[in-house]
Amino acid sequence: SDYEVNVNGIHHRFHNISEELIKFIEEALRRGEDLREIIKKVRELLG
């Protein structure tokens, strides 16, 4: 049904976003950045 496609589409989009965010955060932590600064950047990215 349309509803299922829609829900799956939304889930898929969020899954991709969270994968990208996790990579972004892991790389920043590897560079020794402060978690609070990383979260601030993530918030800015998400608008």
Rank of each mutant, 00 (worst) to 15 (best):
residue 1 S to C: 05
residue 1 S to D: 06
residue 1 S to M: 15
residue 1 S to E: 10
residue 1 S to L: 15
residue 1 S to V: 15
residue 1 S to W: 11
residue 1 S to T: 15
residue 1 S to H: 15
residue 1 S to R: 15
residue 1 S to Y: 14
residue 2 D to Q: 03
residue 2 D to H: 07
residue 2 D to N: 04
residue 2 D to K: 00
residue 2 D to T: 02
residue 2 D to G: 05
residue 2 D to P: 01
residue 2 D to I: 04
residue 2 D to C: 06
residue 2 D to E: 08
residue 3 Y to E: 00
residue 3 Y to F: 12
residue 3 Y to Q: 01
residue 3 Y to L: 07
residue 3 Y to I: 04
residue 3 Y to M: 04
residue 3 Y to R: 01
residue 3 Y to C: 02
residue 3 Y to P: 01
residue 3 Y to G: 00
residue 3 Y to K: 01
residue 3 Y to S: 00
residue 4 E to V: 07
residue 4 E to I: 06
residue 4 E to W: 00
residue 4 E to C: 06
residue 4 E to G: 02
residue 4 E to A: 03
residue 4 E to P: 03
residue 4 E to L: 05
residue 4 E to D: 11
residue 4 E to K: 01
residue 4 E to F: 00
residue 4 E to R: 00
residue 5 V to L: 06
residue 5 V to N: 01
residue 5 V to H: 01
residue 5 V to I: 12
residue 5 V to C: 04
residue 5 V to K: 01
residue 5 V to P: 01
residue 5 V to T: 02
residue 5 V to D: 02
residue 5 V to Q: 00
residue 5 V to R: 01
residue 6 N to Y: 03
residue 6 N to D: 09
residue 6 N to I: 15
residue 6 N to Q: 07
residue 6 N to L: 05
residue 6 N to M: 04
residue 7 V to M: 06
residue 7 V to P: 01
residue 7 V to I: 12
residue 7 V to R: 04
residue 7 V to C: 05
residue 7 V to E: 04
residue 7 V to K: 06
residue 7 V to Q: 14
residue 8 N to G: 15
residue 8 N to A: 06
residue 8 N to Q: 07
residue 8 N to K: 07
residue 8 N to D: 13
residue 8 N to W: 00
residue 8 N to F: 00
residue 8 N to P: 03
residue 8 N to E: 08
residue 8 N to C: 08
residue 8 N to S: 10
residue 9 G to H: 03
residue 9 G to Y: 00
residue 9 G to R: 00
residue 9 G to N: 07
residue 9 G to E: 08
residue 9 G to L: 01
residue 9 G to P: 00
residue 9 G to V: 01
residue 10 I to G: 06
residue 10 I to W: 01
residue 10 I to R: 12
residue 10 I to V: 11
residue 10 I to C: 04
residue 10 I to F: 04
residue 10 I to T: 15
residue 11 H to R: 09
residue 11 H to I: 11
residue 11 H to Y: 08
residue 11 H to W: 06
residue 11 H to L: 14
residue 11 H to V: 11
residue 11 H to P: 02
residue 11 H to F: 08
residue 12 H to T: 04
residue 12 H to Q: 05
residue 12 H to D: 06
residue 12 H to N: 03
residue 12 H to W: 02
residue 12 H to A: 10
residue 13 R to Q: 13
residue 13 R to C: 05
residue 13 R to M: 15
residue 13 R to S: 13
residue 13 R to I: 15
residue 13 R to N: 15
residue 13 R to L: 15
residue 13 R to T: 14
residue 13 R to W: 11
residue 13 R to K: 14
residue 13 R to G: 09
residue 13 R to A: 13
residue 14 F to L: 02
residue 14 F to V: 02
residue 14 F to W: 14
residue 14 F to Q: 01
residue 14 F to D: 02
residue 14 F to M: 00
residue 15 H to S: 10
residue 15 H to Q: 14
residue 15 H to T: 08
residue 15 H to F: 04
residue 15 H to I: 12
residue 16 N to G: 14
residue 16 N to V: 01
residue 16 N to A: 04
residue 16 N to E: 06
residue 16 N to I: 01
residue 16 N to P: 00
residue 16 N to R: 02
residue 16 N to T: 04
residue 16 N to M: 05
residue 16 N to Y: 05
residue 16 N to F: 03
residue 16 N to D: 15
residue 16 N to H: 07
residue 16 N to C: 03
residue 16 N to W: 03
residue 17 I to R: 00
residue 17 I to D: 01
residue 17 I to M: 11
residue 17 I to G: 02
residue 17 I to P: 05
residue 17 I to W: 01
residue 17 I to L: 09
residue 17 I to E: 01
residue 17 I to Q: 02
residue 17 I to Y: 01
residue 18 S to P: 07
residue 18 S to N: 09
residue 18 S to Y: 04
residue 18 S to A: 04
residue 18 S to G: 09
residue 18 S to I: 05
residue 18 S to D: 10
residue 18 S to M: 05
residue 18 S to R: 06
residue 19 E to P: 10
residue 19 E to W: 12
residue 19 E to I: 10
residue 19 E to N: 11
residue 19 E to K: 08
residue 19 E to Y: 08
residue 19 E to C: 03
residue 19 E to F: 12
residue 19 E to T: 08
residue 19 E to Q: 13
residue 20 E to W: 12
residue 20 E to V: 13
residue 20 E to C: 05
residue 20 E to R: 06
residue 20 E to Q: 14
residue 20 E to N: 09
residue 20 E to D: 15
residue 20 E to I: 09
residue 20 E to G: 12
residue 20 E to K: 08
residue 20 E to M: 08
residue 21 L to R: 02
residue 21 L to Y: 06
residue 21 L to A: 10
residue 21 L to H: 06
residue 21 L to I: 09
residue 21 L to P: 00
residue 21 L to Q: 13
residue 21 L to V: 14
residue 21 L to W: 03
residue 21 L to C: 05
residue 22 I to H: 03
residue 22 I to F: 05
residue 22 I to R: 07
residue 22 I to D: 00
residue 22 I to G: 03
residue 22 I to N: 01
residue 22 I to A: 05
residue 22 I to L: 05
residue 22 I to P: 00
residue 22 I to E: 03
residue 22 I to Y: 03
residue 23 K to I: 11
residue 23 K to V: 11
residue 23 K to M: 10
residue 23 K to N: 13
residue 23 K to D: 11
residue 23 K to G: 08
residue 23 K to F: 12
residue 23 K to L: 11
residue 23 K to Y: 13
residue 23 K to P: 04
residue 24 F to L: 10
residue 24 F to T: 09
residue 24 F to C: 05
residue 24 F to W: 14
residue 24 F to I: 12
residue 24 F to H: 08
residue 24 F to P: 02
residue 25 I to D: 00
residue 25 I to G: 00
residue 25 I to V: 08
residue 25 I to C: 02
residue 25 I to T: 02
residue 25 I to L: 06
residue 25 I to Q: 00
residue 26 E to Q: 08
residue 26 E to N: 09
residue 26 E to T: 09
residue 26 E to A: 06
residue 26 E to F: 04
residue 26 E to P: 00
residue 26 E to Y: 05
residue 26 E to G: 07
residue 27 E to L: 09
residue 27 E to S: 10
residue 27 E to N: 12
residue 27 E to W: 04
residue 27 E to F: 05
residue 27 E to D: 14
residue 27 E to C: 05
residue 27 E to M: 07
residue 28 A to E: 15
residue 28 A to Y: 10
residue 28 A to H: 13
residue 28 A to T: 09
residue 28 A to F: 10
residue 28 A to K: 09
residue 28 A to W: 11
residue 28 A to L: 14
residue 28 A to C: 05
residue 28 A to G: 09
residue 29 L to A: 08
residue 29 L to M: 12
residue 29 L to T: 06
residue 29 L to F: 10
residue 29 L to D: 03
residue 29 L to E: 04
residue 29 L to K: 05
residue 29 L to C: 02
residue 29 L to R: 07
residue 29 L to H: 05
residue 29 L to P: 00
residue 29 L to I: 14
residue 29 L to G: 03
residue 29 L to Q: 07
residue 30 R to H: 15
residue 30 R to K: 13
residue 30 R to M: 14
residue 30 R to F: 11
residue 30 R to L: 13
residue 30 R to N: 13
residue 30 R to T: 11
residue 30 R to Q: 14
residue 30 R to P: 04
residue 30 R to W: 12
residue 31 R to Q: 15
residue 31 R to P: 01
residue 31 R to I: 09
residue 31 R to G: 08
residue 31 R to W: 08
residue 31 R to E: 06
residue 31 R to D: 07
residue 31 R to S: 12
residue 31 R to N: 12
residue 32 G to R: 04
residue 32 G to W: 07
residue 32 G to F: 06
residue 32 G to P: 05
residue 32 G to S: 14
residue 32 G to L: 06
residue 32 G to V: 05
residue 32 G to Q: 15
residue 32 G to D: 15
residue 32 G to M: 10
residue 33 E to F: 06
residue 33 E to A: 09
residue 33 E to G: 06
residue 33 E to I: 08
residue 33 E to V: 13
residue 33 E to L: 13
residue 33 E to T: 14
residue 33 E to K: 08
residue 33 E to Q: 11
residue 33 E to S: 12
residue 33 E to N: 12
residue 34 D to F: 08
residue 34 D to N: 07
residue 34 D to I: 08
residue 34 D to W: 07
residue 34 D to L: 10
residue 34 D to T: 08
residue 34 D to P: 12
residue 34 D to C: 07
residue 34 D to Y: 07
residue 34 D to A: 10
residue 34 D to V: 09
residue 34 D to S: 07
residue 35 L to M: 10
residue 35 L to W: 06
residue 35 L to Q: 03
residue 35 L to Y: 02
residue 35 L to I: 15
residue 35 L to F: 05
residue 35 L to S: 06
residue 35 L to V: 14
residue 35 L to R: 02
residue 35 L to P: 10
residue 36 R to T: 14
residue 36 R to F: 14
residue 36 R to I: 12
residue 36 R to K: 11
residue 36 R to D: 10
residue 36 R to P: 13
residue 36 R to H: 10
residue 36 R to S: 14
residue 36 R to Y: 12
residue 36 R to M: 13
residue 36 R to N: 14
residue 37 E to P: 07
residue 37 E to N: 12
residue 37 E to R: 08
residue 37 E to M: 08
residue 37 E to A: 13
residue 37 E to K: 07
residue 37 E to I: 12
residue 37 E to F: 07
residue 37 E to D: 13
residue 38 I to H: 02
residue 38 I to R: 02
residue 38 I to Y: 02
residue 38 I to A: 03
residue 38 I to D: 00
residue 39 I to F: 03
residue 39 I to T: 07
residue 39 I to Y: 02
residue 39 I to D: 05
residue 39 I to K: 04
residue 39 I to P: 00
residue 39 I to H: 04
residue 39 I to V: 14
residue 39 I to C: 02
residue 40 K to Q: 09
residue 40 K to G: 10
residue 40 K to E: 14
residue 40 K to V: 15
residue 40 K to A: 13
residue 40 K to Y: 07
residue 40 K to T: 15
residue 40 K to C: 01
residue 40 K to P: 09
residue 40 K to I: 14
residue 40 K to F: 09
residue 40 K to W: 06
residue 40 K to H: 13
residue 41 K to N: 13
residue 41 K to S: 13
residue 41 K to H: 13
residue 41 K to D: 08
residue 41 K to R: 12
residue 41 K to Y: 08
residue 41 K to C: 04
residue 41 K to P: 00
residue 41 K to I: 11
residue 41 K to L: 10
residue 41 K to T: 09
residue 41 K to F: 09
residue 42 V to F: 06
residue 42 V to P: 00
residue 42 V to A: 06
residue 42 V to N: 03
residue 42 V to G: 02
residue 42 V to S: 04
residue 42 V to I: 07
residue 42 V to R: 02
residue 42 V to W: 04
residue 43 R to A: 15
residue 43 R to C: 03
residue 43 R to L: 13
residue 43 R to F: 09
residue 43 R to Y: 14
residue 43 R to W: 06
residue 43 R to D: 15
residue 43 R to V: 12
residue 43 R to N: 15
residue 44 E to D: 11
residue 44 E to A: 10
residue 44 E to K: 09
residue 44 E to F: 10
residue 44 E to I: 13
residue 44 E to G: 12
residue 44 E to N: 10
residue 44 E to P: 06
residue 45 L to R: 14
residue 45 L to C: 05
residue 45 L to D: 08
residue 45 L to N: 11
residue 45 L to I: 11
residue 46 L to E: 11
residue 46 L to P: 10
residue 46 L to I: 14
residue 46 L to Q: 13
residue 46 L to R: 12
residue 46 L to G: 14
residue 46 L to T: 15
residue 46 L to W: 09
residue 47 G to Y: 04
residue 47 G to E: 14
residue 47 G to M: 13
residue 47 G to W: 04
residue 47 G to D: 12
residue 47 G to I: 14
residue 47 G to C: 04
residue 47 G to T: 12
residue 47 G to Q: 15
